[in-house]
Design a protein around this nucleic acid. Structure first.
Lengths: 208, 208
DNA sequence: CATTGTGAACGGATTCACAGCC
DNA sequence: GGCTGTGAATCCGTTCACAATG
């Protein structure tokens, strides 16, 4: 059974880690991997890995381990990355552009179909071939490409408006880099990736 | 009592959120705030906020609430941001530069004292006045400035070497943007902020 | 017989409910 | 009276230990 949707957030956050390891193994022509070897590679315990996978089904072979390609495909399908996933980036400042470049060049499985800004100086340009549109065009681009996910990289004061626009255009999930709390309806999912907060929170562990 | 060091990670991650809200309130000349008002602003429950603060002491006044400036100062001191915190960025590619600019302009309480790379084309330059050094100079710069925290923004294949160098230079905590697992000694703290993984993990919530 | 899959035990974090105090 | 501070209860995720099985 795939896509149970009630898996704990903590489990879902580990799935892409497994995915990356499996991609590396497949590239190195490794066919079979055990949970204890995966534990080595990921730093998670072997039991945890087996439990994580068990939320979605029984993908291994007792006595042997997991077939790397088979498990990779299962995880892709669980996450929803088996079909092409179109994403937009809102904000074409330094951070938005760097995040776009990074995602375009480094992230398999997702495709950025547009970057949005309201500054006429950048609208009309492109980043590695991906057009920068005016925010007014968001609804059209988003609907034409069936976009369900957005990266928010605008200043805090514009972030709520950006999210509201995107939700109106059908976007369901957000990766938010703006340093502010965003109010969204129940059915919308937001993951905050606030760089200042993450940096400050590690400072706590720097003394002694 | 300040700086108990055994507070749960989950609590520590919320402290900078409180800090930001308090800074905003102080800027708007709000002197007193209750846990339920803080709950409004943060999205965390009032009980949780009170419990979080209680790990470190009793900072409020029963019947009234918390004095914003007093609480801000306490939290700064708990995190260790009361004294100036010097940070380095390793990697001067697009992402490293964007993260540097962002931190320099948007992050109060921390100061970037150097950006490191091994590409002679960028070494010698600067970002908003912060010099880009060759990685060979890391130990000197880090020790001269008592740097305890680093942001890793190099490609995956260089990340382990970068971290090893930094640890040798006395760095204790890392914010890692490289898409790879890093092995570090027990006493070193790493927080992974892998953009591909965070993006992929939210896609899970995009269907239906 | 090695390794998966899983119920049970455990532990840590959140929520509840109220006592304590300004 | 109202809000903080906190023990108790609960919830949830991780670890343990072992039964199931290719």
């Amino acid at each position: 059974m795939v896509n149970t949707k009630d898996a704990p957030r903590s489990v879902v956050k580990r799935l892409p880690v497994y995915l990356r390891i499996l991609d590396n193994l497949i590239r190195r022509d490794v066919d079979i991997i055990s949970s204890s070897e995966l534990s080595e590679e990921t730093g998670f315990t072997a039991e945890q890995i087996r439990k994580d996978l068990a939320y979605f089904g029984a993908f291994g072979t007792r006595g042997k381990g997991y077939n790397t390609s088979f498990l990779r495909d299962k995880i892709l399908s669980i996450i929803g990355l088996d079909k092409l996933t179109n994403v937009i980036v809102i904000g074409a400042g330094h951070l938005g552009i760097a995040l776009s470049r990074y995602t375009i060049t480094k992230n398999p499985y997702v495709k950025i179909v547009g970057i949005f800004d309201n500054d006429p100086k950048v609208v009309g340009g492109n980043i590695l071939g991906v057009p920068i549109y005016h925010v007014d065009e968001m609804e059209k681009v988003t609907k034409d490409n069936d976009v369900k996910a957005a990266i928010i990289a605008v200043p805090a004061e514009y972030a709520q408006a950006a999210v509201d626009d995107a939700i109106r255009s059908g976007v369901k999930v957000f990766l938010n880099f703006a340093p502010t709390k965003l109010d969204v309806p129940e059915h919308v999912f937001i993951h905050n990736a606030d760089l200042s907060i993450e940096l400050q929170s590690i400072i706590y562990y720097a003394s002694t």
